[in-house]
Each structure stands twice: as C-alpha cells, then as structure tokens.
C-alpha cells in the first residue's frame, strides 16, 4: 500500500519536546522533595514544645539578618517554590493534554499489567494536592481559615486546629496523596534524569520512592495525630 507523507511541521527543540517537559517536571519535583523534607523538620519542632516551634517560626523570618531584610530568606524561598510550581504544573498539563490527544479512540477492554496504584493517580492526585496546598495556605499562611480559634502563636494555632477531627482527616488524606505522588514521582524523576540505566539502578530508584513516601507522610502525620490523640499539648 502507499505510505502517507506527513506535512513537515516546525521541528520541536529538545527543551520543548516531551522529554524536555519531563526534565522540567523532574527538576522542579526534586526541589519540592527538598522543600517537604525541610517543612517536615520544622513541623517536628512541635515535639520539643510550643516555645521551640514558635522560635523556629520566628527564626525563619529573621534568617539572614542583617544581610537580608526581615522575611527576606523566606521570600527568596517562596519565589523559588512558586517558579517550581509553575514549571511543574505547566509541564504536567501540557503532557496530560498531549497524552489525551495521542489516543483519541480508547480501548473497549483495558487491562494494566505493570502500573502501580500510585502511577495511575499521578495526574488527579496532583490536582488534589494543588487544591490542598491552596487550602493549607489559606489556613496557615494567610490565616483566612481559622479552625479551633485564632491565636498569635503558631504553635497554639496548630494545636487548636488539629484537635478538630475533620481537619486532621483532611491532612491525613492529603498526606496519603502526597505519599503516592512521591512514590511514583521520585522513581520517575530518576528515570527522566537518566540515572536508571541498569536494572539495579531501577530497583534502587523505586525503593527510594517508597522510602521517601513513607518517611515524608509519616513525619508529617506525627504532629496532627499526636495532637488529635492528646500526646502533644
């Protein structure tokens, strides 16, 4: 049969190729991994008492003084996070759209053999995490959602909020979503960056994903669950 000739489109540059977009996603994602580990460390300060937690929160704002203005270091980090978020979300939605267009006619029977539960929930789980981040900022950064009362002390705010069961439940669900996102995301980032060119490296990257997922979700869950069940006052 005769073969078809495609109309030549403008060549896609490497950075705008699907792999280039994935690189953008991997690098921004690894920055988020670094961030959640730091955030988790800060949260665990509550185990040393309310004073230690408040001191940590205050110190984040005076970090780098007098070289930086009050809150300067925090704002530099926030801008970097925002840039990473834009890159992560932009690449995700561009690739999502492309993947949808690559198979406009779906299979009548679909059967997965290798997909993990985490990998199947990457996209909608990511959207859920984005919604959670907005909620979380409204609660603890912009102080617009006040659960358990209003306090000037960050520690008092946290303890009052997580004494409410449904708020803790929201955070438990969000952290399960984060754990799943990390489980596939860490492995996927290693693969995208080209660090998994042997079977052994692939196993290591998968194990790293699982370990990070468990450590991060576990570490973040200690304060809210501790507060809800009265271990942290």
């Amino acid at each position: 049969m005769a073969t078809t000739t495609l109309q030549k489109k403008k060549p896609i540059s490497p950075m705008h190729s699907t792999i280039g977009l994935k690189l953008m996603m991997a690098v921004s994602g690894l920055f988020f991994v670094l961030y959640v580990l730091l955030h988790m460390y800060g949260n665990l300060k509550i185990l040393s008492g309310r004073a230690a937690f408040d001191e940590y929160a205050h110190h984040l704002r005076i970090l780098g003084e007098p070289m930086l203005p009050y809150g300067g270091a925090l704002w530099i980090f926030r801008i970097l996070l925002l840039l990473a978020l834009v890159a992560h979300v932009y690449s995700a939605f561009t690739l999502w759209k492309g993947a949808g267009e690559a198979r406009s006619h779906k299979y009548a029977v679909r059967s997965a053999a290798a997909a993990t539960v985490s990998s199947r929930w990457m996209r909608w789980g990511g959207v859920a995490l984005l919604a959670f981040v907005v909620f979380h900022l409204f609660q603890f950064t912009w102080l617009q959602i006040n659960v358990g009362g209003e306090f000037s002390s960050p520690a008092a705010r946290v303890v009052a909020a997580f004494g409410v069961w449904w708020l803790t439940l929201i955070y438990v669900v969000a952290l399960i979503a984060l754990a799943m996102h990390l489980r596939h995301g860490v492995w996927s980032a290693c693969q995208t960056l080209g660090y998994t060119s042997t079977a052994r490296a692939r196993r290591t990257a998968n194990a790293a994903g699982i370990v990070l997922a468990v450590v991060v979700a576990g570490g973040f869950l200690i304060p809210p669950l501790g507060i809800l069940f009265g271990a942290i006052k």
């Binding site: 994935k22 492309g98 990998s119 990457m122």
Partner: peptide, 21 residues
C-alpha cells in the same frame, strides 16, 4: 525525539506498561 513528538505520540510517564507488553 523531535520526529516522535511530531508524529503525535504521547509523552512517557515511566509506568512500565510498554516493557510488560
């Protein structure tokens, strides 16, 4: 890679279904 993308294939999400098939 440029030709692959221009042909309308999707991007890889490292799920592993390809290798299993």
């Amino acid at each position: 890679v440029a030709e692959h993308d221009a042909d309308g294939f999707g991007g890889c999400t490292n799920i592993g279904e390809c290798s299993a098939a």
